[in-house]
């Protein structure tokens, strides 16, 4: 436990810097980033490729130590890999010898959770994410979107209070991606989990989030924080059509210096 001024934040990133040392060079991935995320908040992180977004999530999870500054997760300073989070990577990272359901249950087995309860919870998540009927399919028998849903279920199985997602839908086609966005939005509304989502899609970042953090080129600093002025209840096409949505996406696109929208 550490004495923090803002004990109500789920995630506090306090003046962190990350430098990677290789044989000759030193790469500063993150120059100085501070960010507080409130419990239950959905924060999207966007920025140019290679600016340090994945690095930032690894800091929060404790998979990486900052060169300077500190990260506090759920009131406790991060010193090593944390177990009170759920992590979804860009690639689903499923065990190819396990069925969809068993891949989800890996979380429970690793944690030594009660298997009956975990099984029940897994079935609920399978139901919720529309994977019913594919519980026993092996990963190679699933589509990319389904694999990603399995990874999402696995990350949610132990009901983490913080969910970290690193470009989880990057490999999906546009339509599947939209469906996944709608599903993730619903899951977030139902579970009240705090979410940090790294994405390259500006539309996705705005549709899902309460706030969008725009990072600069490496070495990364926070360029701007955009408050998303949309209602919590977000129908997909209706939201896309709203003027606030257009304003926010156009603004982020400007900040990123893109000529046209690229997802």
């Amino acid at each position: 436990m550490t004495g923090t001024l803002n004990a109500t934040a789920a995630v506090e990133i306090d003046n962190v810097a990350v430098r990677f040392h290789s044989k000759r060079t030193e790469v500063t991935a993150i120059e100085q980033v501070s960010l507080d995320v409130a419990p239950g908040e959905f924060v999207s992180i966007v920025g140019p490729s290679g600016c340090g977004k994945s690095t930032l999530l690894k800091l929060v999870s404790g998979l990486l130590k900052p060169s300077a500054g500190s990260v506090t997760l759920l009131g406790e300073q991060v010193r090593g890999p944390r177990h009170d989070i759920g992590f979804v990577f860009q690639r689903a990272a499923l065990l190819e010898w396990r069925s969809a359901r068993k891949n989800i249950l890996l979380q429970a087995e690793m944690r030594g959770m009660n298997s009956a309860e975990a099984g029940k919870r897994a079935d609920e998540l399978i139901e919720m994410t529309g994977l019913s009927g594919f519980e026993n399919a092996l990963p190679h028998e699933l589509s990319g979107g389904m694999q990603q849903r399995v990874a999402l279920c696995r990350a949610l199985l132990h009901q983490p209070r913080v969910l970290l997602m690193d470009e989880p839908f990057g490999a999906l086609d546009a339509l599947t991606r939209e469906q996944m966005n709608v599903e993730l939005h619903r899951v977030w509304r139902e579970t009240g989990t705090t979410v940090l989502l790294v994405t390259h899609s500006i539309a996705e970042s705005v549709y899902l989030a309460n706030r969008v953090i725009v990072l600069t080129q490496r070495p990364a600093v926070v360029k701007e924080v955009i408050e998303v002025d949309l209602p919590d209840e977000r129908d997909y096409s209706a939201t896309m059509a709203r003027p606030e949505f257009a304003t926010a996406t156009a603004h982020i696109r400007d900040l990123l210096g893109a000529v046209t929208g690229h997802d």
Binding site: S61, G62, R82, H83, G86, M110
Partner: peptide, 26 residues
Amino acid sequence: DAEMLELAATMGGGPVKTFAKIRFPA
């Protein structure tokens, strides 16, 4: 997969479970 091992670290199973459930079968 290095990401799989990172994921295992966030699940907190320890090295023995990580070996038995992930590394060895892989």
